[in-house]
Structure formats: structure tokens, C-alpha cells
Simulated scan of single mutants.
Amino acid sequence: MTSPTGNFLAKRKSSLRDRVSTAEWEARVDLAACYRLCAHYGITDLIYNHISLCIPGSENHFLINAFGLHYEEVTASNLVKIDIDGNALDEEAPDISPAGFVIHSAIHKARPDAACIFHTHTRAGVAVSAQKHGLLPISQHAVRFYNRVAYHAFEGLAIDDAERQTLVTDLGAHNVLILQNHGLLTCGKTVRDAFELMYYLEMSCQIQISALSGGAEIIHPPAEVCERTARQYENFQSFIGDRDWQALRRQLDRRGEIYEV
């Protein structure tokens, strides 16, 4: 028996490139690349988790992965287009993750600046989310998030609409949210911005778990050094531009990843 996701994939073997706007196609390609990079770097949880992206020029429409696909299967054409109320805008679209809708639609609606929203359940990310002290500024990677992380208390599986408001309230104007006993979330104006935050947040969590497991006394940089370093990171972004993102896209090309279809 073929699943709804399987039917959708069969219909989407041909590219949507000529049937959507140039802006939408570029958004689809960027988001599909992000899913493939997550698979490469192990930032996955089987078929769960989700990354969403607003479609430029389309009010309250965004792209998200079809529920049932591994990140290695995501392409530009098989991303699902939905509106802010969760209505599928694609013909015969498969299901999307209920948690994906609750989390992402709530934040997209409250934060128009958060074009891309990225949520994960990695081992290190969940481990840090379960530690009472949260993310510690004990590495250069982690210091970039100093005083720039919000926290959200665990309320069970994120499939209840009632959690939408507490998520939005806890996130506030931050671009990084640690969902306690659950996982990590980042927001960005672009896919590149959200991916970079998540990549280094994940690295920070891995470093923290490794450092604490060693049992040795941890060096904590002074607060003023942490704040100055976090600002250095923010000021350095204009120099970096999208050079790191383009390098990652070239990495996918060298690996022969087929996602621009």
C-alpha cells in the first residue's frame, strides 16, 4: 500500500522550477540544501524535527518537510507549502508534523523577521536542555550566545495549540531558544543565518557535555569578556556574508547530493 507521502513523492519527481516564482524556487533550493547538510552533520532525529522557511513575497506562506521523509530525501520540489493556519497549498500534499506546525506557525506569525526556523533533538542538545544551568559560556563557540539564549519549560509533546503562546512569549526577540528537556531552536532572516546559529549551538552543546563529563574543574571566562566576545561575533557577520553558506553548498555539490530538483 502506497502512503500519502509516497504518492506525493511520485508526483514530485519532476521539478517544480518552471511552475513557481524564481524567489520561491531559490527559497526551496536553499531549504533543501539545509536539510541535506543536517543529514551530513548528523543533526537529525530519524524522520522527526523540522526546518521551515517563509516564501519571499508570499504573505504567511512557508515551506516545511513532508512528514515521513528522511532529511536525505528532501528536495526543492518535495517541500510542502502551507499557510500560517496549517492549510496545505500543494495538490495532494502529504501530512506535515503536528509539532512542526504548532512550533513553526506560532513563531512565524509572531516574528515576521524570523524567516527561517530550525528545530532539533540531538543527543547533546537535549542533554544540555536537561541541565538546570542551561548553556554555559565555557567555549568560544558558546560565548557567542552569551545572554542571547531564551528558555522554554517542557509542556509535553509540542502538539497542543495552547503551547503556541508560551513558546512565543519565552522566545521573545531572541533568535536562540532552548526547549528544556526537549531540544534546540534557532531563527534567522535567511536559511544561512538559522543554520549557522544551529551548527554552533550544537557544537557548543557537544563541547559542554564533553567538558563536564571529564570531571575536571571548568574555566569560566569573566562576564565582561563573554559579552565583548558575543558582540565581536555580531559585528563580524557583515564580513562573513554568505561565504560559509556558499562553501557548504559547494560541499554538497562535491558529494553529488541531488536536491535542486
Score class of each variant (00 low, 15 high):
Glu59Pro: 03
His61Ala: 04
His61Ser: 06
Phe62Lys: 01
Leu63Tyr: 05
Asn65Cys: 02
Asn65Ala: 12
Asn65His: 07
Asn65Glu: 02
Ala66Phe: 02
Phe67Gln: 07
Gly68Met: 05
Gly68Leu: 02
Gly68Arg: 01
His70Thr: 13
His70Asp: 13
Tyr71Glu: 15
Tyr71Gln: 06
Glu73Gly: 07
Glu73Val: 05
Val74Arg: 04
Thr75Ile: 07
Asn78Gln: 11
Leu79Glu: 10
Leu79Gly: 10
Leu79Met: 12
Val80Trp: 10
Val80Met: 08
Asp83Lys: 02
Asp83Cys: 01
Ile84Gln: 11
Ile84Met: 08
Ile84Cys: 04
Asp85Trp: 06
Gly86Ser: 08
Gly86Lys: 13
Gly86Leu: 14
Leu89Gly: 09
Asp90Leu: 14
Asp90Val: 15
Glu91Lys: 13
Glu91Pro: 01
Glu91Asp: 15
Pro94Trp: 01
Ile96Tyr: 01
Ile96Trp: 08
Pro98His: 04
Pro98Gly: 03
Pro98Phe: 06
Ala99Trp: 08
Phe101Ile: 13
Val102Ala: 12
Ile103Cys: 13
His104Glu: 10
Ala106Asp: 08
Ile107Asn: 08
Ile107Val: 15
His108Pro: 15
His108Gly: 13
Ala110Tyr: 12
Arg111Asn: 15
Arg111Ala: 13
Arg111Phe: 13
Pro112His: 08
Pro112Val: 10
Pro112Trp: 05
Asp113Leu: 06
Ala115Pro: 00
Cys116Pro: 01
Cys116Arg: 00
Ile117Lys: 06
Phe118Thr: 06
Phe118Tyr: 14
His119Gln: 11
His121Asp: 06
Thr122Leu: 08
Thr122Val: 04
Arg123Leu: 11
Gly125Pro: 12
Gly125Asn: 12
Ala127Gly: 14
Ser129Pro: 15
Gln131Met: 15
Lys132Pro: 02
His133Asn: 14
Gly134Trp: 05
Gly134Lys: 04
Gly134Met: 03
Gly134Glu: 02
Gly134Asn: 06
Pro137Met: 02
Ser139Tyr: 02
Gln140Phe: 13
Gln140Ser: 09
Ala142Phe: 05
Arg144Ala: 13
Asn147His: 11
Arg148Asp: 07
Val149Gln: 03
Ala150Arg: 11
Tyr151Arg: 03
Tyr151Pro: 10
Tyr151Met: 02
Tyr151Ala: 04
His152Glu: 00
Ala153Lys: 07
Glu155Gln: 15
Gly156Met: 12
Leu157Ile: 15
Ala158Gln: 13
Ala158Glu: 11
Ile159Gln: 10
Asp161Met: 14
Asp161Phe: 13
Ala162Met: 08
Ala162Ile: 14
Ala162Gly: 03
Glu163Met: 11
Gln165Asp: 07
Val168Pro: 00
Asp170Asn: 09
Leu171Gln: 03
Gly172Met: 00
Ala173Ile: 03
Ala173Asp: 14
Ala173Asn: 12
Ala173Leu: 02
